[in-house]
Design a binder for these strands. Structure first.
Length: 791
DNA sequence: CTCTCCCT
């Protein structure tokens, strides 16, 4: 079958020739991703002698897509991967012969900070723009400026610089944020719509919206499986727990062993019934009336009446009439979970055909909405909800909340049933809920996330005035200023003019979030850089594996083991884990035994290599290598590492409530951290050390820094805690500190001879709320008539 | 004691 996009080749190519920006809309299955690069290639684009000699670039939001699309196009054009290449974070196949390059959008953003004009390229195709990912949005903004620059330079010297073309591809028609945004494109770009190769999907709404969508999904899947013709079922739920629960229910009801004999029996009974009915139908007046009392499935071929002791009673209907029979088995269902933290092997099982005589039934999260396409799906069951990460920009508190998805995303989910043939989508909510409670589109990522990384990246490209940046959807002013403030605390930008500093420039060269980049640039002391790199690599990757309930004790033991000598930091515990993993030979068995996700550990390993090479390349006098037999840090190094961590999280300090209320001194004695409240810098709420932290079972520290702050069902908890010494704060957190008057006790000491220097105790106050800290000793000197604290 | 999904 010819791809729908091929019918539009003329229109698309003409539009690209006549416009610098073109938008192409076409749902999954239209073939735009694989075909548009080929149209360009075949029309001579990227050919060294042509008018547009630069490469054809296609960006993807996901690594797998970049790699597999490059393979596909290379295969279709019969060209090697040195010509149709890909580049993702850890894998490049480009060569000097490369003509078409697939890459993740993050890769192109990084290239932009090296070469703002994108001189290598003649066309940039930005795919999946409808997903509104952070990187894609930023890319569209930057590229809109590059277009103008290239156009100007090309007018001056056409022989040297050619204009750039941009193609934005979207699966939905939500493109007005791009087309009608005059700060982005002064003249609205043309929009070309391509039909999709998609079969019709009938949508069935529930009459009423149930409280418990898992129970409702169970009922619906049972009905589909019992009554409807073959075809895979895909169920959308919100998270791992729900998925595992439904898996268990369905596996109990429909054991996956295929009782072949029973299946044949069912077929035999039905055939016999049909024959008999056919014979009866020949007698006039004996036709049965086909009432469709159960039309909610949209089928009435076979109806399940009741089940008793594992016996199933069916009413079988065909064009000749109706027939009732019982059979004593439950047809097997091949039930598979699918969510992203599942090991790769488990995820790959959904692509294999289910065992003979069983029906595939995949229970998935949002992964199956965009990134994973499961073959053979004919029925979709959609709970209509999705789990979303929320981020309170003012307080920095994160939470996970389950809410209705958008109409656009419900449409995507339904579409999954129409890839191989006509399908059905059962929505476990009423059409009234859909009409009234569903937003048209999901909120773009940029409106939901902290963006200090993006802002630093823009500053490094020379964009100082980020407020004027042509965002497809501008983030809130507060989000932007929060990002600039944090970059100020980290020393990455000048606090007055908000211009990038040399340190900031160095940080921008590192492919990690600014906090972690800060830790790297200050970490090259006392031979600590390899440790800092390992810590940053681990923090940048999701490390922990979901714990199994039965193994609670063992898990706890392994936590203690991982903590090693120092038990005052969850982050140093990560360092120990990385070290132990490498020492054990980086095996999957080690991960299994120690409650780690091997996928994450491999990612950490690759990231350590990347960061190590980068640090060595970026900084003179940095001499690091990846040592698989990395020894644990010494006591002195541990202290330094904690100070480095403090610097990275200097705006995430928390102090014990009882200590603050006691003027910064003394406080209550606690045996463990259970119920011990901490005060936060940016919120009036209190927070607690999570029971999963290594610090929970010890006397809680007076002060700590945390990686993340999470709002759970009952209270707000820290994630990734490091105990710190309040004495460090006046130095590491200068911008947050002020000092009160010298204390009378202990008595100030004056230097013997000159009397123009004295050592005194002062009470520092820290943070936006002026928390009193335990007194520290400082040296003061006389300046004119006043005493000032020496630097 | 429970974590949707991605990326330099």
């Amino acid at each position: 079958m010819k791809l729908p996009v091929c019918g539009e080749e003329q229109v698309i190519m003409e539009a690209i020739r006549n416009n610098t920006v073109v938008v192409i809309c076409g749902e999954t299955g239209s073939g735009k991703t694989t075909q548009v690069p080929q149209f360009l290639y075949e029309a001579g684009w990227s050919h060294p002698d042509s008018d547009n000699p630069g490469l054809i670039a296609i960006t993807q939001p996901r690594r797998v897509a970049a790699v597999s699309m490059a393979k596909r196009v290379g295969y279709e054009l019969n060209l090697p991967e040195s010509v149709v290449s890909h580049q993702i974070r850890y894998d490049v196949t480009t060569s000097e012969k490369t003509r078409i390059k697939f890459m993740t959008d993050g890769v192109l953003l990084r290239e932009l900070s090296q070469d703002l004009l994108l001189t290598k390229y003649s066309v940039i195709i930005i795919d999946e723009a409808h997903e509104r990912n952070l990187n894609t949005d930023i890319l569209i903004g930057v590229v809109s400026r590059v277009l103008k620059l290239r156009a100007e330079l090309s007018r001056e010297d056409r022989a040297k610089i050619k204009p750039l073309r941009v193609v934005i591809m979207s699966a939905t028609l939500r493109v007005s944020d791009f087309t009608e945004n005059s700060t982005l494109f002064t003249k609205p770009p043309p929009v070309i719509s391509v039909n999709a190769r998609q079969y019709p999907v009938s949508i069935h709404f529930n009459k009423r919206t149930p409280e418990d969508h898992v129970a409702e999904a169970f009922k619906k899947v049972s009905k589909i499986h019992d009554r409807l013709p073959e075809g895979g079922i895909l169920i959308f739920l919100t998270g791992q727990n729900e998925i595992q629960h439904l898996c268990k229910l369905l596996r109990e009801k429909y054991p996956s062993l295929p009782p072949k004999a029973a299946l044949e029996e069912r077929k035999r009974i039905r055939q016999a019934a049909e024959l008999e009915l056919k014979r009866d139908a020949a007698i006039p007046g004996e036709e049965s009336d086909s009432d469709d009392s159960d039309s909610d499935l949209g089928f009435d071929e076979e109806e399940l009446v009741s089940t008793k002791d594992g016996k199933w009673e069916y009413i079988y209907k065909c064009e000749y009439g109706k027939f009732t029979y019982t059979i004593s088995y439950a047809a097997p269902l091949h039930v598979l979970p699918l969510y992203s933290s599942l090991p790769t092997e488990a995820q790959l099982r959904v692509f294999q055909p289910p065992p003979e005589g069983t029906r595939l039934c995949v229970i998935a999260t949002n992964v199956a909405e965009t990134s994973v396409t499961i073959p053979g799906i004919r029925y979709v069951v959609d709970c209509g909800k999705a789990k979303e990460r929320r981020y309170d920009i003012k307080t920095g508190v994160q939470s996970f909340e389950v809410d209705w998805t958008s109409k656009a995303s419900a449409g995507q989910r339904a579409g999954r049933a129409g890839r191989t043939g006509p399908g059905h989508c059962y929505r476990l909510y009423s059409s009234a809920v859909f009409d009234h409670d569903f937003e048209q589109f999901s909120t773009p990522e940029i409106s939901r996330m902290p963006i200090e990384g993006v802002v630093l990246n823009m500053k490094s490209m020379g964009i100082d005035n980020v407020v004027n940046f042509p965002f497809p959807t501008p983030p809130e002013r507060q989000t932007l200023s929060k990002a600039e403030k944090l970059l100020g605390y980290l020393g990455a930008i000048d606090t007055d003019v908000k211009h990038i500093t040399p340190v900031g420039q160095a940080m921008a060269n590192l492919p990690v979030t600014p906090r972690f980049a800060k830790m790297l640039v200050i970490g090259n002391q006392q031979d600590c850089l390899p440790f800092v790199i390992a810590i940053v690599a681990a923090l940048s990757t999701e490390i922990a594996k979901a714990r199994r309930r039965l193994m609670r004790k063992k898990y706890f033991e392994s936590q203690i083991k991982h903590a090693g000598l120092d038990r005052s930091s969850d982050i140093l515990k990560l360092l120990n884990v990385v070290g132990a993993y490498e020492y054990a030979g980086a095996t999957a068995e080690f991960c299994e035994e120690n409650f780690l996700r091997s996928k994450a550990m491999e990612e950490i390993r690759k990231l350590r290599w990347q960061l190590t090479n980068l640090m060595a390349a970026l900084f003179e006098n940095v001499d690091v290598w990846v040592d698989p037999k990395m020894l644990p840090p010494t006591k002195r190094q541990i202290k330094f590492l904690k100070q480095v961590i403090t610097a990275g999280f200097i705006d995430s300090v928390a102090i014990r409530k009882d200590v603050i209320e006691n003027g910064g001194q003394g406080g209550t004695r606690f045996k463990n951290a259970r119920g011990v409240a901490y005060k936060l810098m940016w919120s009036e709420e209190e927070a607690f050390i999570h029971p999963g932290s290594i610090l929970y079972s010890q006397e809680p520290p007076i002060a700590l820094v945390y990686n993340e702050l999470f709002k759970g069902a009952t209270k707000t908890c820290f994630k990734g805690v490091t105990a710190i010494d309040t004495k460090w704060l006046p130095e590491i957190g200068k911008e947050f500190c002020s000092f009160g008057r010298p204390l009378d006790h202990p008595i100030p000491k004056y230097s013997e001879q000159t009397k123009d220097k004295k050592t005194v105790y002062v009470v520092p106050s820290f943070g936006p709320k002026g928390w009193p800290l335990p007194p520290i000793q400082v040296e003061m000197h006389r300046k004119g008539t006043r005493w000032v604290i020496s630097a």
